[in-house]
Design a protein around this nucleic acid. Structure first.
Lengths: 195, 195
DNA sequence: TGTCTATCTGAACATTCGTTCATTTCCAAG
DNA sequence: CTTGGAAATGAACGAATGTTCAGATAGACA
């Protein structure tokens, strides 16, 4: 029976994952110790094991949650539309979503090699599913003659790399607003695909 | 265990850096121990300290050497040319150079956060210098009306991110030759900048 | 042959690592 | 008030970390 007031588990649990997220993003999975995470949460290291079986699961859970949220958010936002409109929606969504979640994104792209093979396979499958969402749009546009692509698969990877790169330089204090960044990236993608 | 002919230091030294490069690229700086590097070289851990003052210097030297080589190689290859030709040369150079040195590139992009601040500043300055090479080309083309860019600085970052992304998926055993990959990326960049 | 010296070994250093667990704390229901 | 049980402590575990260093080793030179 869960304690209603005074129970810490419903508070501490999320705090453990939030602390791990912030620290993994800043210093890297391998460079962060369980004791650092515990300090950030305000408990002793042993207490973390009430909320995760081990350090690896902490990383895996963060990455899986991020990719599942990303997919769910895109599917909630996307709707049947002509390829050009669908591509614009995808680009703006991708930039906006990634700018809003820099830590999640950073971990998902940088910590793949710290996953044990079994977890890596799960994450790769999710990442591939997201890629396929874009590839499908590009394929449709190519078939309808709206885009002019020499290689749809390469274009998919090139566009995602270009868009994701925004997280490496964007700062809220910079000269460009998020809306303008969205627009500028969409403009370049539109031209890159020949539309 | 025995010196075969002459001194080993001229052989072991490069081997230490080569082993560090391979292991850092595969498992990440923080996840690789000095003993793993030593095993790869075929010596005991203590012997490494004849060739590097510490682990941090091993990482820093690899990153600095990579970026200095990159800049030198580009400056050797580039020549005064109209913006469109210069951009093509840059794109093809960047893709080719990065495909030929996947380990160096991976380390340079993934291990920035493992540099102590003083070393980070040096590496960032070198990276910025390389970025400026592209930005200069885009600026010139923009001034001459050859390119149609809304924001030259963002375009610089977007193009570099797109091109560098090639290292995350390209495999020698894949369906595309290096030459074709070079060509496909150049084609997308050319369109993206409006030329 | 014997000495010199660069190179490497092998053991040791103090920390830190992820993880476990018996014990304590403390709220809430009986 | 008593008591059950979830949550946290704090100490401990063996293993691994980066780094140091006295001493062994063996090619080069006299």
């Amino acid at each position: 029976m869960a304690r209603k007031t005074g129970s810490h588990s419903e508070i501490t649990g999320p705090r453990v994952h939030a602390a791990a997220q912030r620290l993994f993003a800043r210093y890297g999975y391998a460079a962060v110790s369980m004791r650092q995470i515990a300090t950030e949460v305000g408990v002793q290291a042993g207490a973390l094991y009430n909320y995760t079986p081990d350090k690896q699961s902490l990383l895996f859970d963060l990455m899986r949650a991020h990719l599942e949220d990303l997919l769910a958010a895109w599917r909630a936002e996307s709707c049947p539309a002509p390829p050009l409109a669908a591509l614009e929606r995808f680009c703006r969504f991708h930039v906006r979503y990634h700018l809003d979640r820099p830590d999640e994104v950073f971990i998902a792209y940088m910590e793949l090699r710290n996953l044990v093979p079994e977890n890596f396979a799960v994450i790769e499958r999710l990442r591939k599913r997201y890629e396929t969402e874009l590839e499908t749009i590009l394929c449709a546009g190519q078939a309808q003659g709206v885009f002019a692509l020499e290689d749809v698969k390469l274009a998919t990877l090139a566009v995602i790399a270009m868009l994701t790169g925004v997280t490496t330089w964007y700062r809220d204090t910079g000269r460009l607003s998020r809306n303008r960044v969205e627009m500028l990236y969409w403009d370049m993608v539109r031209k890159a695909v020949g539309a």
